[in-house]
Amino acid sequence: MTNFKVFSDFACPFCYIGFSIARKLTEENPDIQFDFYPYELDIDVPEGGSSLEASIPKEQIEMSYRRIERLGSEYGLVYKNKIKKFNTGLLHRAALYAKEAGKFYEFASEAFNAIFADGKNVALKEVVNDIGLKVGLNIQEMMMVIEDGNFEEAMEEARELAVAYGIESVPTFIREDGKRVTLLKDYEKFKRDLID
């Protein structure tokens, strides 16, 4: 079994690709395991969301999305929302609950889709609950344990681990021997970088 730590944020369009790579790799090779760690790119995004254009020039966003859409097309990813960003704190905590329930990959797939294909505000409880319902989670229990602070320790541990590893961009894949891969490319090349 080869284990990887993956630092990722649902608000990151590149992380949607990184997640898709990890999912495909685990389907191809059951001896590979990915452990996803929550990484909030911007914890200060207000509940109503904000525009990327407030901090990144429009031309730069458009240029980045040309590459993102090219890489994402290999996995059938849809990027309709290219300018709105949302606070992912609640979503990360719900994903930790989904992980405990054995449904992380299903939950994460719906979460990325909600943000980038549907442009939904994942800072809202009703949106996160809808994602949870789609994958068969007990959303009453999910919200209760989140509100009780059950995942605060895991969130803090992930933050500390990100600092310890010097994470500066996401997604970052770290193999158990310390090798790290951050630059996304097409699947076969990325797989070679990751495994060789």
Rank of each mutant, 00 (worst) to 15 (best):
M1K: 12
T2L: 15
V6L: 09
V6D: 06
V6F: 07
S8T: 15
S8Q: 11
F14K: 08
C15E: 05
C15T: 07
Y16G: 06
G18W: 04
G18T: 07
S20E: 07
A22R: 06
K24E: 15
K24A: 12
E27A: 15
E27T: 12
P30A: 12
F34D: 06
P38M: 04
G48S: 11
S51R: 14
L52K: 14
R67Q: 11
I68K: 05
Y75C: 06
Y79P: 06
K80C: 02
N81G: 09
K84A: 11
K84M: 14
F86M: 08
N87S: 11
L91K: 01
R93S: 02
A98I: 06
K99T: 15
E100P: 00
G102P: 13
F104P: 08
F104H: 07
Y105E: 14
E106T: 05
A108N: 06
A111L: 07
N113M: 10
A114P: 05
I115A: 11
D118G: 03
K120D: 04
N121C: 10
V122A: 04
V122R: 01
K125C: 01
V135F: 05
M143W: 04
M144R: 01
F151W: 08
E152L: 12
E153C: 05
E157R: 15
E160P: 04
G166C: 01
P171K: 10
T172L: 13
R175G: 01
E176N: 13
D177C: 09
L184E: 05
Y187M: 10
K189R: 12
K191E: 14
R192H: 13
D193H: 03
I195D: 06
I195A: 02
I195G: 00
D196N: 14
